[in-house]
C-alpha cells in the first residue's frame, strides 16, 4: 500500500486528467468525483511498481477508462444527463472553447475518447490502441472520422 503523501501528490497531479476523462466518458460531473475516488483508492492500494511517470499516467488513464465503462454499463440509462446540464458545471472557458468542448462531447463515445487522448494527452495512435485495447488502424480510422465530424460541426474554427 502506498503512503498518504504519495497518494495526495498523485491526486494533486492527476485529478484534472481523471476529471477530463470522466467528462469525456460520462458527461456527468456528479459521477466524476465517484470515479476519481475509485481510481485513487485503487492507486493507493495497488502494489504496481511504476517504471516512470508516463507509466503511472497510462495506468491511471487505463483504470479511469475501465471505471467509467463499468459505470456506464450499470447506470447508463438512469444516470446520463444532457449536455446542457453538463456544461452548467464550473468550466472556466471562452465561448469558442465552450463551443469546441460541446462539439467534442457531442461525438459518439468511441470518437470522444480517441480525440481526447490524441489531441489533449498527446498519445499516438499505437499508444491509444494499447490503452484502449484497440487495433492501431481502428484508432486511425476513428480519429479521421472524428475530425471529419468536428470539421462539419465547427466549420472554420478547426482549420489548421
Amino acid at each position: 500500500m502506498r503512503s498518504e503523501q504519495d497518494v495526495n501528490t498523485t491526486i494533486d497531479q492527476y485529478a484534472d486528467t481523471v476529471a477530463r476523462l470522466c467528462m469525456v466518458y460520462l458527461k456527468n460531473p456528479a459521477d466524476s468525483e465517484d470515479i476519481s475516488q475509485t481510481v485513487f483508492l485503487k492507486y493507493a492500494l495497488c502494489d504496481t511498481v511504476f517504471e516512470s511517470e508516463e507509466h503511472k499516467k497510462a495506468w491511471l488513464i487505463r483504470v479511469t477508462v475501465n471505471a467509467c465503462r463499468d459505470l456506464l454499463k450499470s447506470f447508463f440509462h438512469s444516470r446520463t444527463v444532457s449536455l446542457d446540464t453538463l456544461l452548467q458545471c464550473p468550466v472556466e472557458t471562452t465561448d469558442s472553447s465552450r463551443e469546441v468542448l460541446e462539439a467534442v462531447l457531442a461525438l459518439p463515445k468511441q470518437y470522444r475518447e480517441v480525440i481526447y487522448l490524441h489531441y489533449y494527452e498527446g498519445y499516438t495512435a499505437p499508444e491509444i490502441g494499447r490503452l484502449l485495447k484497440k487495433n492501431t488502424n481502428t484508432v486511425y480510422t476513428l480519429l479521421r472520422r472524428a475530425k471529419d465530424i468536428l470539421k462539419v460541426s465547427l466549420g472554420g474554427e478547426l482549420n489548421g
Binding site: 485529478a15 484534472d16 476529471a19 476519481s36 472556466e92 472553447s97 468542448l101 489531441y119 489533449y120 474554427e157
Partner: peptide, 12 residues
C-alpha cells in the same frame, strides 16, 4: 490547439 484549450478549461 482549440481542442487542447477546450479541455484545458476542465479542472477537478
Amino acid at each position: 490547439e482549440p481542442i487542447r484549450s477546450a479541455f484545458e478549461a476542465v479542472h477537478a
